[in-house]
Structure formats: structure tokens, C-alpha cells
Amino acid sequence: DVEPGKFYKGVVTRIEKYGAFINLNEQVRGLLRPRDMISLRLENLNVGDEIIVQAIDVRPEKREIDFKYIP
């Protein structure tokens, strides 16, 4: 289970104008929005990159997770 405030290693699987989709595993995916990136820009991410993200909002009923990147 993903818990708000905890850090997780994930893989960038898709990049859109509104953010990057990060997979923690095959069943768990969330969104990293540009506003939640500190010292990292969306255009510097590539599909396949491994990054450490912090879960900031977890909505299991909608199967949605918002992430934050903190270097």
C-alpha cells in the first residue's frame, strides 16, 4: 500500500504536458505534475528513467496517486 509522505522508487512510463506518469510496480501508477517538481523540469525526464518520488495524495477509491519530486 502506498502511504502519503513516504518515498518510493518509480519508473517514468509516459510524459504529457500536464505531468509524468510514474509506475511503482505493475499495479501502482501515479502522476508527477510540473508544480510538484523541485529542481527538476518535465523536459529533463525521459521514459524509462528511474526516480525517487514522494506520495503526497493517495485516493485508493479512484486509484489515483499524486507524487512530488524532492532531490
Results as ranks from 00 to 15, higher is better:
residue 3 E to N: 09
residue 3 E to R: 11
residue 4 P to Q: 12
residue 5 G to I: 03
residue 6 K to Q: 11
residue 7 F to L: 09
residue 9 K to H: 13
residue 11 V to Y: 14
residue 12 V to A: 01
residue 12 V to C: 02
residue 12 V to Y: 02
residue 14 R to S: 11
residue 18 Y to S: 05
residue 18 Y to H: 08
residue 18 Y to R: 05
residue 19 G to M: 04
residue 19 G to N: 01
residue 19 G to K: 03
residue 19 G to W: 05
residue 20 A to D: 00
residue 20 A to G: 02
residue 22 I to E: 01
residue 22 I to T: 00
residue 22 I to F: 03
residue 22 I to H: 01
residue 24 L to Y: 02
residue 25 N to H: 09
residue 26 E to L: 12
residue 26 E to V: 12
residue 27 Q to K: 15
residue 27 Q to A: 14
residue 27 Q to E: 12
residue 27 Q to C: 11
residue 28 V to I: 14
residue 28 V to F: 08
residue 29 R to I: 13
residue 31 L to E: 02
residue 31 L to F: 08
residue 31 L to A: 02
residue 32 L to F: 02
residue 33 R to K: 08
residue 33 R to Y: 03
residue 33 R to F: 03
residue 34 P to T: 10
residue 34 P to R: 12
residue 35 R to H: 11
residue 36 D to M: 06
residue 36 D to F: 07
residue 36 D to H: 13
residue 37 M to G: 03
residue 37 M to P: 02
residue 38 I to G: 15
residue 38 I to F: 10
residue 38 I to M: 12
residue 39 S to H: 14
residue 40 L to A: 08
residue 40 L to E: 06
residue 40 L to W: 04
residue 41 R to Y: 11
residue 41 R to G: 11
residue 42 L to S: 03
residue 42 L to Y: 06
residue 43 E to G: 10
residue 44 N to F: 11
residue 45 L to F: 05
residue 46 N to M: 14
residue 46 N to W: 15
residue 46 N to G: 12
residue 47 V to E: 07
residue 48 G to P: 01
residue 48 G to N: 07
residue 48 G to H: 05
residue 49 D to T: 06
residue 50 E to T: 15
residue 50 E to Q: 14
residue 50 E to N: 13
residue 50 E to G: 12
residue 51 I to Q: 00
residue 52 I to E: 07
residue 53 V to C: 04
residue 54 Q to S: 06
residue 54 Q to T: 08
residue 55 A to G: 02
residue 55 A to H: 01
residue 55 A to C: 13
residue 56 I to F: 10
residue 56 I to E: 03
residue 56 I to G: 07
residue 57 D to I: 11
residue 58 V to G: 04
residue 59 R to P: 03
residue 60 P to V: 13
residue 61 E to M: 10
residue 61 E to Y: 05
residue 62 K to N: 10
residue 63 R to I: 07
residue 64 E to T: 10
residue 64 E to D: 06
residue 64 E to M: 12
residue 64 E to S: 08
residue 64 E to R: 08
residue 64 E to K: 07
residue 65 I to A: 06
residue 66 D to A: 08
residue 66 D to M: 08
residue 67 F to T: 02
residue 68 K to P: 02
residue 70 I to G: 07
residue 70 I to K: 08
residue 70 I to Q: 10
residue 71 P to Y: 06
residue 71 P to G: 11
